[in-house]
Amino acid sequence: MKRLSVACACIALLPMTASAICVIEPLESKLQAAETVYVGTVVKSALVPRLEQLRSAATSNERRTTIRHTVEPEIVFKGDPSTVGAVMSTWHYSDPNAVRRAVVSELTTLMPGDTILVVAESSGPARYELCTASRMWSTETEKAVRAHFSPNR
């Protein structure tokens, strides 16, 4: 038992990187504050940095990359989708020749063909991540958005 206590104390002293998982806020407050809200389909996704830059990255953090998604608006609830321009997400480049592979569970997958709700607080690219209001267009999301923008409110 004493060894276990010593081992736990040693582990607690090791330097570690911590990432906070965000608390999902109610969608209604985000819709109220947003400048633009629309539903669209991702028609194109592209890496922002060059692939050569990612391949030559020395550390795992340097392999995190931004992906620019072009979204074609289909249903506009608020604002002008042309002021948003694109939706940006983050991903991690995994070298196919590497011995180790990094898996980052906090990253969200977004690809051409996906239909998403885009919630942009201001002009310029919107973000699509776990801690943003932009999300996949699902039955649950549709109910919440249509209730918020209902003329009977």
Score class of each variant (00 low, 15 high):
71 V>P: 02
75 I>H: 08
136 M>R: 13
8 C>S: 09
85 G>R: 07
86 A>K: 06
61 N>S: 13
83 T>A: 14
86 A>Q: 08
61 N>G: 05
144 A>G: 07
100 R>L: 14
124 G>H: 12
84 V>H: 04
125 P>Q: 09
65 T>D: 00
73 P>F: 06
8 C>V: 11
79 G>K: 05
122 S>P: 01
48 V>G: 00
23 V>D: 13
37 V>N: 02
76 V>K: 04
109 T>G: 05
38 Y>A: 04
130 L>K: 15
6 V>Q: 09
7 A>W: 06
37 V>A: 03
103 V>K: 07
140 E>G: 14
66 T>I: 10
89 S>V: 04
82 S>V: 14
35 E>L: 10
107 L>Y: 12
47 L>R: 05
65 T>G: 01
31 L>I: 09
51 L>Q: 09
11 I>Y: 12
104 V>T: 08
56 S>G: 12
59 T>R: 13
15 P>D: 07
19 S>Y: 15
69 H>C: 06
52 E>P: 00
107 L>W: 06
78 K>G: 05
145 V>T: 09
74 E>D: 11
100 R>G: 07
67 I>R: 09
41 T>E: 08
76 V>H: 05
10 C>F: 08
113 G>V: 01
92 H>L: 15
54 L>M: 11
32 Q>M: 07
139 T>A: 15
145 V>L: 07
117 L>M: 06
3 R>F: 13
93 Y>I: 04
98 A>C: 09
80 D>S: 10
20 A>P: 00
52 E>S: 14
151 P>E: 06
29 S>D: 15
1 M>I: 07
75 I>W: 03
45 S>F: 00
98 A>G: 13
117 L>H: 01
136 M>I: 01
94 S>M: 06
32 Q>P: 00
129 E>R: 15
17 T>K: 12
37 V>G: 03
24 I>M: 10
10 C>E: 12
93 Y>L: 06
137 W>I: 02
90 T>M: 15
81 P>E: 05
126 A>M: 06
105 S>Y: 09
113 G>K: 06
134 S>F: 01
83 T>Y: 06
7 A>K: 11
1 M>P: 06
102 A>T: 14
70 T>V: 12
108 T>A: 13
21 I>P: 00
22 C>L: 10
80 D>V: 10
52 E>F: 04
71 V>L: 03
63 R>M: 12
115 T>R: 14
26 P>S: 14
95 D>I: 08
66 T>D: 00
7 A>Q: 10
35 E>I: 02
101 R>T: 14
93 Y>C: 05
19 S>A: 11
9 A>C: 07
116 I>A: 00
57 A>R: 03
136 M>D: 10
72 E>L: 12
28 E>Q: 14
5 S>E: 07
15 P>G: 03
146 R>V: 10
152 N>M: 08
16 M>V: 12
119 V>I: 09
69 H>P: 01
149 F>P: 08
66 T>C: 01
59 T>Q: 08
49 P>A: 04
78 K>V: 04
143 K>N: 13
142 E>N: 10
